[in-house]
């Protein structure tokens, strides 16, 4: 069991490292270095900054040194809490990001909880009542969920919100709370606004998970141990919930690993459409403005969120599946 956890941990750390390298590559991708872009931006706004300032910046980020030194410099900065400077905002990257990281986590967590809460019972229902009208209805909705990209869904819902209810469904806060400091009222306001974007982000994942759960459970329902339990006189309801659902939950739990990247991806683009105060719109803005330290940091944070979430779901899986606990499954 420990060996399994250790293997997962090593892989997670390795993945995290790859994420930082990829983020660094993204920072480096645009032609010219950060100071060039900074200079161009400053001259466009006609601010007067001395040449020495640029030179000191170059030294600070080791831009005159080889690439790997720059990477190490950047990384060591991160470990001491310095993620670089956003030139678009002229502030440190962390200040720009503010509580958007937390908002992204809240939104993604909400989407995952919703996805699970919806997909689990529907998946069970669809498998137990295979080929019933309800099964067909859910399968159909599931296909729509797979087929409609989340940003389009967001647009369409916004349109209906606008035309039918004359209300703006975008944002995570009502206007009066937008700039307020955190308070109980603001939290309640957030909880009130959260479900709709969470549903939009979670829909395609929900559709996928319903399919997974239905297929898994259908497989399990045909297994002989179900006949054994049935022959022991168990009622169908207890039986299904106690044995096959429990077994089918394991692969279901492991879907968090791929659900997370999916949901974080979705949150970026849906946040752009709905104007949510998460990392998404900030990432788009920074990429368009070639504000690369900010963009790279956001990509890295999103990647790190996924890696950590996946690792936690691996631990969860280990906890619920005795076959992994006893090292029976690789």
């Amino acid at each position: 069991m420990l060996a399994y956890a250790a293997r997962r941990l090593v892989l997670a750390i390795f993945t995290l490292w790859t994420v930082t390298v990829l983020s660094f590559i993204i920072i480096q991708l645009p032609p010219g270095d950060f100071v060039d872009a900074y200079m161009a931006q400053l001259s466009a706004t006609q601010s007067n900054v001395s040449e020495q300032h640029f030179e000191s910046l170059r030294r600070q980020y080791a831009l005159d040194r080889p690439m790997y030194v720059q990477y190490l410099k950047w990384m060591s900065g991160i470990f001491s809490g310095d993620f670089g400077t956003s030139m678009m905002w002229r502030k440190s990257v962390l200040d720009v990001i503010g509580d958007r990281l937390a908002m992204t986590m809240v939104l993604s967590l909400g989407a995952i909880i919703l996805t699970w809460a919806v997909a689990l019972p529907i998946g069970i229902y669809s498998a137990v009542r295979q080929y019933s009208i309800g099964d067909y209805v859910f399968t159909f909705i599931g296909f729509i969920g797979l087929g409609v990209p989340s940003f389009l869904l967001a647009l369409v819902l916004m349109y209906f919100g606008f035309t039918l209810f004359d209300s703006d469904i975008g944002g995570l806060f009502s206007p009066e709370y937008q700039l307020e400091p955190w308070s109980w009222g603001k939290v309640k306001d957030l909880l009130y606004h959260l479900p709709l974007p969470a549903i939009i982000i979670g829909l395609s994942g929900t559709a996928e998970l319903i399919r997974v759960m239905r297929a898994n459970l259908l497989d399990e329902l045909r297994k002989p141990y179900v006949i054994t339990a049935r022959a022991a006189g168990m009622s169908e309801r207890t039986l299904v919930l106690k044995y096959p659902v429990r077994v089918a939950l394991n692969p279901f739990a492991s879907t968090v690993g791929y659900l997370l990247p999916y949901i974080l991806s979705g949150s970026v683009i849906v946040s752009v459409v709905l104007g949510l105060p998460t990392l998404g719109p900030l990432l788009l803005g920074s990429l368009v403005a070639q504000d690369m330290f900010l963009a790279g940091t956001i990509v890295m944070m999103l990647g790190a969120l996924t890696v950590i979430g996946t690792f936690l779901s691996d631990l969860l899986l280990m906890w619920i599946d005795p076959r992994i606990r006893f090292e029976m499954v690789q």
Binding site: T228, A232, R246
Partner: peptide
């Protein structure tokens, strides 16, 4: 009572 044919799969693997 019934003893079913497949000893490998006639018991739930996670209980």
């Amino acid at each position: 009572a019934l003893v079913f044919q497949e000893p490998m799969t006639s018991l739930s693997p996670v209980h």
